[in-house]
Amino acid sequence: MALSIVRLGLRSVINFERNAAVISVTSVPKQLKLIHTKPACNGSVCYLADLPRDRELRSDRGSALRRYSKHHGRPEEDRRKQSDSDSDSDTDTECKGYDRTEFWRRKMRTVHNILDVDKDGLISFNDFILFAERFKSLGHLTNQQAEEFTSIIKLTWEEQWGAIDPYNFVTVEQYLEDMHHVLNDKSQKKRAYRWLPYLFKAVDKDKSGFISVHEFKLFFKCLGLDNEKAAVAFAVIDVNGDGKLSQKEFVKLGKEFFCTEDEKKVSKMFWGPLIH
């Protein structure tokens, strides 16, 4: 009888511990059960699969960081770092830093106004073509040069503003923002002025390799500006006073206009009077 009582007591203790263990396992919160995940293998590499909650957090964080530029397709934060690290190394330009002065913004608004050939307040691909046609219509470019010029104008639009579409417009503020990023990126900044040599060749009427004040007036005429403004601008940018500009001088002035923020530079006159 005593032996039976002892066996019954031991069985009760064992059953109690077993039940306690079951209760403790089933009462564990569901989220804690997810700590142990099934490993996934890819070839010779195995790893623990992400927790659903971790994937949500990572996805949310990624969405917050993925602020893509409309045209360049890089995260905004990465693009900013890239721009700062790749600032212009040319000795004759000053494309540096991330902030821009109001003086520089006035210059970019001036160029936007010039490229807006139909004066509707927006730049379109059609404006680009009309701009190129003004210079080609002077008749001073060879057929090959004219074709190259058109190709560069087309390439510049596609690289910087995307599709050639009649409804693809560039506002003033968008132009300023895009030019800011382009000029701060060493790999892209040539877009801003790679077509300048063709403008020079188009107005170099006698093909001397230099342009006089009279030929500079052709340049301003194609920009939609009058002769008086051309004469004033030429007098300012012809620093050595020899009455002519070489292609090297012309291109340097054009590049400097886009890049420098020094108001003392004569290049500020290159595209005519600055607008507000």
Rank of each mutant, 00 (worst) to 15 (best):
V25I: 14
F258K: 01
L274H: 04
V266A: 06
H276A: 13
I14W: 03
A192S: 05
K205L: 09
T91N: 10
T26N: 06
R80Q: 07
M1K: 11
P39F: 08
E147F: 09
P52T: 04
F125P: 02
K30F: 03
S85N: 12
E249N: 06
A230M: 04
L48S: 11
W104Q: 03
W104Y: 07
S246I: 12
R55W: 05
K268G: 00
I152P: 00
A49K: 12
P29E: 04
S83Q: 12
K119M: 13
R100L: 14
Q247P: 00
M179R: 04
L115M: 13
R106S: 04
D118C: 10
S27V: 11
D165I: 03
I153K: 01
E94S: 13
L65E: 02
G121M: 11
H112M: 08
S4Q: 14
L138F: 13
K38P: 03
F16M: 14
T110F: 01
G9C: 14
M108T: 03
A64T: 09
M108Y: 01
I275M: 10
H214V: 15
C95N: 06
A202L: 08
Q160P: 00
V232H: 07
R191S: 05
A49H: 03
F169W: 10
N240Q: 12
N184G: 12
K189Q: 06
S208G: 03
N143F: 07
D178V: 15
K154N: 07
R191A: 07
F125K: 09
M108L: 15
R18G: 02
S187I: 09
G272Q: 05
N240R: 14
A235K: 12
K264L: 14
L196A: 09
R74I: 15
P39L: 13
F149M: 08
Q247H: 08
S187E: 06
K252C: 06
P166K: 12
G162I: 10
S69I: 08
L8H: 06
D116S: 05
P166V: 07
G62T: 04
D88L: 10
C259M: 04
F149T: 02
F234G: 02
G241Y: 05
F220A: 06
S246E: 04
H214M: 11
L245H: 01
K264D: 05
Y175S: 07
S89Q: 13
S27R: 14
K119R: 15
P273Q: 06
I129C: 05
P29W: 03
K119C: 11
D262W: 07
A163N: 02
E228V: 12
H276Q: 14
D54L: 14
I153P: 00
D50A: 15
